[in-house]
Amino acid sequence: MNLRKDSGALKWTLIIIGELFLALFLILPLVFIVRTSLEKGLAVYFKSITDQYAVKAAFLTIKATIWAVVVNTIFGVCAAWCITKFAFHGKKILSTFIDLPVTVSPIIAGLIYVLTFGRQSFLFPLLDRWDIEIIFATPGIILATIFVTFPFISRELIPVLTAQGTDEEEAAALMGAKTWTIFRTVTLPHIKWALLYGVVLCTARAMGEFGAVSVLSGHLRGKTNTLPLYIELLYQGYDFTGAFAASSLLVVLTIIILILRVWLEGRGNKDADIRK
């Protein structure tokens, strides 16, 4: 007898409610994007996505994403390593600060950078003297992207490293291994899937960030537009086909990311089972 077996009616009612909900809120918009982008035919579609401003925006998105992934990977690995392998005071505060960026509204994130690097900032005289342009320019966009994805990688690594403990690293250290050797041969095998998983999440969020980037871009067409900002521009200008064509590119990337995510999760779980 299976206690958990609900009556067929209840089971299928719930499944249908759930699936309808997802179909309406998640699938339909995707279909709609693709459908609308192709409304005026393939030729217009390809013209839209090869528009020089679109390509420029795509490149800036890629650039900001790469920056975010690289910086957050370095940060995530270092932070996870020192939080899980060492005892020190202030660990909780450190963790709180790391998680802070995702709890802040993206608009506020943008505001904070404007206050930090803008004209009214105490840093502004310095930046001005050295001729460093941050806000309303590419560095601002990159910083904002890093900020909104800040904990994505460390958050994936910390649980895995906590579960793994410090025995193996200690054993290696007692045998005389150096930091890099220990990390590469002992720690990395444990975290590689979690790391990749974090990178995928970070990429997803980085390429799609809108609010914070919108505050910092100053909307110079072509110069500091990322793809999402470019989409907004087209949409506000009633170029719906163009907006949805550019969106469809991001939809494709999103689907790839979702597939990667499911696959990586499976790999990570398999590895965790082996370790048990």
């Binding site: 392998k85 005892a87 802070l100 960026p101 930090t116 800040f150 200690e170 930091t179 220990i182 990390f183």
Partner: peptide, 27 residues
């Protein structure tokens, strides 16, 4: 700890954290 690398990893962590989160928060 017998595990090496605390100074390095902590330093990198704190530097990046400062630039991205702490200094903007201070401002």
């Amino acid at each position: 700890s017998v595990i090496p690398g605390f100074g390095l990893s902590f330093g990198v962590t704190l530097t990046i954290l400062s630039i991205v989160v702490l200094i903007p928060l201070c401002s």
